[in-house]
């Protein structure tokens, strides 16, 4: 799949933003006044900035409000509702902390649950697609929730939880890659089933339908960079999990180490999210012999 920068930025940033909002909703860290304002500002910048970035890849963003109408069937629509609900509830909760020094605990919990629901809905946009076997698995949701919670824990300064989450996320990411590598073949999609001609013999593409490229090839048969996938996997997992974990375990987490850990994790998350898209194989490639 084509790794569109707008979608990578959206999923990484808004994921971390909602993760941080979730932690704030649960009272990690327990802050009020201007400190609370700073935390909430960062969370909203990430969450809302990410959502805005996602509209950049739309063909007609001026109609984006229509995306709220089909929540009965569409995970993309549900994501929109959960996101708006989470942002509104957390605004009220955050307003209480910043301006009135009051924590409406129930509201914080509801807001945190909505943040998790938002991330889950985002993950299901990809996880629901049977056409992309690598994504079409419950571990996609686990992965997205893992990135969100880890990022949120790091940004909220909840160091102990963040340390555990960094380790867990590294394992989840590794398992996700290992399981995902086999799934396309395991599902049995071949040029034979795609054309229905598999019963007659070995099917091979002889001539593509067009000499140039097209939307399908650019969007769904993206193959550039797959040859570096293994190197990028190692770089990604080192930056987003192993090194930050080692730093937090061995050093006292001050602001400087904290900042280094957050930046490392974020950079690593961009690498692995790029791979999430670039490595995903769509079944339509079978019609093009790929």
């Amino acid at each position: 799949m084509h790794p569109a920068p707008s979608v990578i930025i959206f999923t990484v940033l808004s994921g971390i933003g909602f993760g941080l909002l979730g932690f704030l909703g649960l009272g990690f860290p327990s802050v009020t006044g201007w400190v609370a304002f700073a935390f909430f500002a960062i969370a909203y910048l990430l969450a809302v900035g990410g959502l805005l970035a996602s509209t950049l890849h739309l063909g007609n963003p001026q109609r984006a409000l229509r995306a709220f109408t089909q929540w009965r069937t569409s995970w993309l629509s549900r994501e929109g509702w959960f996101a708006v609900a989470a942002l509104l509830i957390m605004a009220v909760y955050g307003g209480g902390l910043v301006f009135f020094e009051t924590s409406i605990i129930a509201l914080g919990w509801i807001g945190a649950a909505l943040c998790v629901a938002t991330i889950y809905a985002t993950s299901m946009i990809y996880g629901q697609l049977k056409t992309v076997p690598r994504w079409n698995h419950w571990t996609t949701s686990l992965l997205f929730l893992g990135y969100s919670l880890t990022g949120g824990a790091l940004l909220s300064g909840t160091t102990t939880i963040a340390t555990y989450l960094l380790a867990a996320l590294g394992i989840v990411q590794f398992v996700y890659w290992t399981l995902g590598d086999k799934r396309f073949v395991d599902r049995g999609h071949t040029q034979g089933t795609a054309t229905g001609l598999g019963g007659l013999g070995d099917v091979r593409m002889l001539e593509p339908p067009h000499t140039g490229t097209n939307y399908l090839l650019k969007e769904m048969v993206y193959r550039i960079g797959r040859k570096h996938a293994q190197k990028l996997r190692v770089i990604g997992i080192l930056m987003m999990s192993v090194v930050p974990f080692a730093l937090l375990v061995t050093l006292d987490a001050g602001h400087l180490i904290g900042a280094v850990v957050v930046l490392l994790h974020l950079a690593g998350a961009f690498v692995t999210r790029w791979l999430f898209f670039a490595e995903a194989e769509h079944v339509v490639g079978l019609y093009y012999g790929k």
């Binding site: 799949m1 739309l58 063909g59 049977k130 939307y215 969007e219 019609y287």
Partner: peptide, 24 residues
């Protein structure tokens, strides 16, 4: 009503949907 998000093209196994690059 189409916002041109492209998700339907992703969901189609057959490559039957193409986003028009001029109209989005």
């Amino acid at each position: 009503a189409c916002i041109g998000c492209g998700l339907c093209a992703w969901a189609c196994p057959y490559g039957a949907r193409e986003m028009d690059q001029a109209e989005g």
